[in-house]
Design a protein around this nucleic acid. Structure first.
Length: 573
DNA sequence: GCCGTTTTCGGCCCGACTGTTTTCAGTCG
């Protein structure tokens, strides 16, 4: 049995929930949550680390006690301490914590006074009017809890970054019309470009907070006003997304932006640094006693604690602060660095646009090259090309290339990796291609060992260049297939293969942690849109966002290079 | 429960809004 990091993290979070309901020491609770977060973003599996004899207490947030609990969990699949807690407080109570308006204190009260253990119990005590008999539970709170229960599922779902974009853009536009607005930005995980966002955090600088708040709650897409104060307000939009607004003075804008961009872990880390220097950071600025030392820009605030400016995408407390101290932060890749797209389809297989249309759009994006990567014959549903049709396309590409100036169409194909690890094209044809983009399109449910072996065998083929769709996941829809990416990366490094970061917003395979892992291993990445239409070529930005979250620089990504250099990088030994 | 360039004990990030109080606890970000 393999215990994954996220499973241990989940157990730690459950322990934290139960301790919270019991009213335990908040710092002890935080210790469990910190450890859970650490485990979630750990690039290596704990199980492997234990096998390699790594001392877990060398990890931040993990001490002697938690290290022991992790080891027991890995060995037995359970944490006895959690079992013990469950005999005192039913675990299902943690579900109630997800209801808006209910926190640990209220859940405990409901459990003790009315024996409420789950949503059903809660509904019953509301209907019978018993809830209101409890001290501290009034009419308004009852309404809030009732509404909250209806939406637990719906609102806990995170929105894909690409879906949040148009919502944010119209919000920003709406606020820019107001002359009282000096600066406006969407902070939070949106600004950190996480692949999904929970709610949206809009920050505005203005000296007319009241007017801004009124403008905010009157926005036409607002369905419900959740709170409305002097400087902050929250609403729920018709789309179900919650939006939080905060208004500050210009003198505090940078500090507030820093605070509302997060992540929470990053904020806590820099505030701790400030405390050590006898300073205090809050959303209004950085202070020595009453005196504000900085606050107008984020850069000023970082500078006061001896840090270089850290890009939002890196603010996850994954080691970026140490690098900022040493002034050794990576120079993150930007959209401007991209010189071409190496994964696109045309009408020849399952795309919507012709070759000419795709080329025209790629040229408009100032690209120097594009690779046409139709599906191969096994993928009949996508009208995959057999050898004969592919050869016809190659001829056509030659003709078009002869006419093009300062732009090259690369001959390629999205080759299916069959179940036995062979490629879905004969060597005769493979050798006529400039590069191959190889991917799994069937048999997703093989065991991790078999799936990994399948890919490794495919990589042994000297014509294998890019491993596309490396996890097969669809955000909010399909889990990644079981695969040992660590082994794959090792093999890619040895064989000179490249891993694809697929920029389709619903895919985003690899994730940020994978990117960082690849970078550390020296494995090259290609960011590709997998476009099936001309407009999808614009999805490149989402791939770049993800790459930035994974600390990638232009040099780590092969399609930032000129054609000549690209060809050198693709060459296998 | 973790952690250490003032500490192996005593700290642990910080503030706004709501509802139900009648001066503040609870929740949230």
């Amino acid at each position: 049995m393999t215990i994954h990091n996220i499973e241990i993290a989940a157990k730690f979070n459950q322990i934290a929930d139960l301790l919270e309901i019991q009213g335990e020491n908040p710092f002890r609770i935080r210790a469990y949550r910190n450890a859970a977060r650490e485990l979630e973003s750990l690039p290596q599996e704990i199980t492997d680390m234990i096998q390699q004899g790594v001392d877990l207490t060398t990890l931040p947030t993990i001490g002697d006690d938690l290290a022991k609990k992790i080891e027991v969990m890995v060995k037995t699949g359970e944490i006895p301490y959690l079992k013990k807690l469950e005999t005192q407080v039913p675990l299902v109570l943690s579900e109630l914590l997800k209801v808006e308006g209910l926190g640990p204190k209220r859940v405990k009260t409901l459990f003790q006074k009315l024996n409420v253990q789950n949503a059903d119990d809660l509904r019953k005590v509301i209907e019978s009017g018993k809830l209101r008999t409890i001290k501290g539970f009034g009419e308004k709170l009852e309404q809030k809890i009732s509404a909250g229960m209806l939406h637990v599922q719906e609102y806990s779902k995170r929105t894909r970054l690409s879906d949040a974009f148009p919502i944010v853009e119209s919000f920003i536009k709406y606020f820019k019309k107001l002359k009282e607005v000096k600066q406006v930005e969407c902070a939070g995980s949106f600004r950190r470009r996480r692949e999904t966002v929970g709610d949206l955090d809009i920050l505005i600088s203005s000296n007319q907070a009241e007017k801004i708040i009124t403008h905010f709650v009157n926005y036409e897409e607002v369905d419900e006003i959740l709170s409305q104060g002097d400087t902050r307000s929250s609403v729920r939009l018709h789309s179900g997304i919650q939006v939080d607004l905060r208004v500050v003075d210009e003198a505090s804008y940078g500090a507030a932006l820093l605070y509302f961009t997060g992540s929470k872990a990053h904020n806590i880390a820099i505030r701790k640094m400030a405390v050590k220097m006898r300073l205090k950071i809050n959303e209004y600025g950085i202070y020595r006693g009453e005196e504000q030392l900085a606050g107008k820009t984020e850069k000023d605030v970082y500078k006061q604690i001896g840090l270089a400016y850290i890009e939002p995408e890196m603010r996850e407390d994954r080691g970026e602060i140490v690098l900022a101290q040493k002034n050794e932060l990576p120079k993150l890749i930007t959209l401007n660095d991209i010189k071409g797209d190496l994964h696109c389809h045309t009408t020849a297989s399952d795309g919507d646009a012709s070759i000419e249309q795709m080329v025209e759009k790629a040229q408009a994006l100032n690209y120097e090259y594009i690779a046409l990567t139709e599906h191969s014959k096994s993928l009949t549903i996508a009208h995959g090309l057999d050898e004969k049709r592919l050869l016809q396309q190659l001829e056509l590409i030659d003709k078009l290339n002869a006419k093009l100036k300062k732009f090259v169409i690369l001959k390629s194909m999205e080759v299916d990796i069959l179940e036995d690890g062979t490629l879905d094209l004969s060597e005769d044809v493979l050798k006529q291609l400039d590069l191959t983009v190889c991917a799994v399109h069937s048999k997703f449910n093989l065991s991790e060992r078999k799936q990994t072996e399948r890919i490794l065998r495919a990589m042994d083929n000297p014509y294998f260049n890019i491993f596309a769709h490396p996890t097969g996941r669809l955000i909010n829809k399909r889990q990644p297939y079981a695969i040992d990416l660590d082994k794959i990366m090792q093999a890619a490094k040895e064989r000179g293969c490249v891993l694809e970061l697929n920029a389709q917003p619903e895919r985003m395979e690899l994730d940020d942690v994978h990117c960082l892992q690849a970078k550390n291993r020296g494995v090259k990445i290609v960011i590709s849109t997998d476009s099936h239409s001309t407009s999808q070529l614009d999805n490149m930005k989402f791939g770049v966002f993800q790459a930035r979250r994974g600390w990638l620089e232009a040099k780590d990504v092969i399609n930032t290079h000129s054609l000549k250099e690209l060809q050198r990088l693709l060459k296998r030994d």
